[in-house]
Simulated assay, not measured.
Amino acid sequence: MKTISTKIIAASLASISLFACNAEEEQELVEPMKASQEADLVGYDPTTCNLVQNFGSGELPRAVDIIEEDGAVMIVKAQRRGHNGKYLEETEGLLLDPSTPSTNLINPFDAQMLGVYGLLTVGDASGEAVNEQGGRLILDFSPVGSVTMKTMVLTDIDEDEAGSKVELFSKTGQRLDEQLIPAKGDKAAVILSFDNVPGVAKAVVTFGADRRRAGSGAVARLQLCVEGVGRRDEARFNNVQSLWLEYTGDKPANVAVRAKEGESSNAIFTAKGMKPGTMFKLSASANGSLGEALEISTNHKEQDIIPTNANPNASLKAQYGSFRVVEARCSDYPLQLEE
């Protein structure tokens, strides 16, 4: 979580003071914060390449099936849950105005502090209000290839909606990550952070536990990097700390990865019957390093060495045998790969 800047604290105190002085006067709902800089947003990740916050332009409420903002493009579908807990046919998503009382998905203070301008949700049968009976949003990033997911801001996950979750999928349908959305309470907002998951082709946001005909909520902000976008480090001034690989062989394989340090080596990853197109992550140990190199071998008698020590004079390759480097990091930014 990012620390709150002094500007935000000052703005908050000023807002509270103003409310106290005019408590007896009729008050209008607080307008969302007009952030002069993205860094003023609570929970903003400065390595974000594409910020989706307005969800396009136009009057609210409105149905949406495509969202384009700040270089990010996604196809949006929504599904309500039926009486038997199964999902109904796909429909368009619904965008609601957070400042309208009938929206009932976020409190005014959170809307102001988080700079919420639109709420993307699952609509009810009327298509004009939030669905309260459980459902899910499907965000398809195929128009831009894939994205690196950083952060989502979600709202209105109450205690009886525990089990709400976000799942991230690759182009091959592999689930790359799954996180439960904390049940912060009625109209409360929550910042859900992902550890730079690359290769995300689809995100599924589920409101309410599966098979329960209950659950509402909304997506208020997306922070991500579209495939190929953003600053990239050109040299390894530090040891590689994290590495995402994709198996690109043409048949299933047993895979083993060993971290080599001098004369010693340590097994850090094994998988049996890995299917082509499978992505996996290798993370540094407590000492902050993956060692001098990684040795990857398969039962097909393949063996490759990926250097992971600090070496500003040599870049990592994009492909090592049957393994593609999806992303490598030795800092907050991915390394530039040698094609």
Rank of each mutant, 00 (worst) to 15 (best):
K202R: 14
A10I: 10
M74F: 02
C225F: 05
L243C: 11
F169P: 03
V144S: 01
M279Y: 00
H300D: 13
I268H: 10
F141W: 13
N107W: 04
P252I: 13
V240S: 02
H300L: 14
G123C: 09
G215L: 07
M74C: 04
D210C: 04
A39S: 14
P307R: 08
K202V: 01
K165F: 10
E178Q: 15
I157P: 02
V205K: 04
A328S: 09
D158S: 15
N104T: 11
S242P: 01
N107R: 09
A129P: 02
G291F: 00
A253S: 14
R80S: 04
E327W: 07
K272S: 14
L245M: 09
M33T: 07
L316W: 11
A314R: 09
G118A: 15
T298I: 12
Q241S: 15
I9W: 15
A328H: 07
F141R: 04
P307H: 11
T47C: 09
P46C: 08
E302A: 13
V229Q: 00
K272C: 07
A314H: 10
S170K: 06
A310N: 00
R175D: 07
V326P: 00
G273T: 08
T3K: 13
Q179K: 15
T148M: 07
S164W: 06
R136K: 15
T270G: 00
N239P: 01
A63V: 06
V257K: 00
L168K: 03
S170H: 10
A201Q: 06
D110T: 11
N84P: 00
V73G: 00
F55D: 01
L60T: 08
R329G: 02
G82H: 06
R212P: 01
T103P: 03
V190E: 03
E132I: 05
H83M: 14
P276N: 11
A209G: 10
S12H: 14
S331L: 10
A78M: 10
L120R: 02
A188Q: 15
F207V: 06
E89W: 11
I66Y: 02
M113Q: 05
C225D: 08
Q336R: 11
K34N: 12
T206R: 06
A14T: 13
I9P: 00
A11C: 06
A318P: 01
N287F: 08
G321Y: 06
D195I: 07
A259W: 00
E69N: 10
V229W: 06
A220M: 12
K281T: 06
M1I: 11
K260H: 13
P307F: 08
M274Q: 13
L154P: 09
S331D: 15
L224T: 01
L176H: 09
L51W: 05
L282C: 03
S264Q: 14
L94T: 05
V130K: 00
G273A: 11
N104H: 14
E261M: 12
Y247P: 01
N309Q: 12
V130C: 08
E327G: 05
L114R: 02
E132T: 04
S285R: 13
L120P: 01
K34D: 12
A11I: 05
I296A: 07
